[in-house]
Amino acid sequence: MSSYPTVFRIFSPTDMSYGGDELSAREVDFLEEEINGTSDQSAQRYPHEPWIAAPFRYPIPVGTQFQSRLVPAGSTIRCFYAADTARTCAYESAYHFMRFRLASHTSAFSQSYSKKMLGSVKLDLQDCADIKVEDPERLEKSDYSLFHNWSISNKTRRTAQYASLRDPSRKGYCYGVFRIERLSQRSEGIWPLYLTMDPSADQAMRYRSDFAHDLPEQVRFSDVR
């Protein structure tokens, strides 16, 4: 029997709408196609809302030096990541946001907010695999080898769930969705939120949202890395 929980993902609001006031919709379409190598056929194949379809629609030809939790370096596996609560989603995203900002050796970044969107979508958990980590306390958060071994050895994978290693409560769950059919085509809800590095702490960031609740206000890099 299947269950259909609502899951959450943070994404950039401008991901699918490159351009500006100077460009018409037709020009933006043309430039998107040129830059991404996608076409209308691809849009027809994925009738889902753009933020849901993005990880499947846009090939990310990452080099061998990059990897993600369930996708080994150099792999062509496409995966939509989500979490069971907005809070767990926020902790997971905070790590990647800070990791990216701190890799740049500059203090010149403005303190203005990076606007993101928190989206929620229904997920079909039929045949969902549960990846167990025997001893989460001893597992390096950035050691993805256990997860990669699972992805490589499970060719018929559809969905996987695993305990979030970055949510300090240790109660959150993450999902890796390999088949877009497992996701509803429409959002349950989308809320704007804002991320910024915390000016009062060296390696910490803040979330602010007028609409999404239950987000951690401040996240320290040491808590999530």
Binding site: G63, Y81, A82, C89, H96
Partner: peptide
């Protein structure tokens, strides 16, 4: 590729 990767990461 690095930026594509950054945008695709996280939950």
């Amino acid at each position: 590729q690095y930026l594509d990767y950054q945008r695709g990461l996280g939950v």
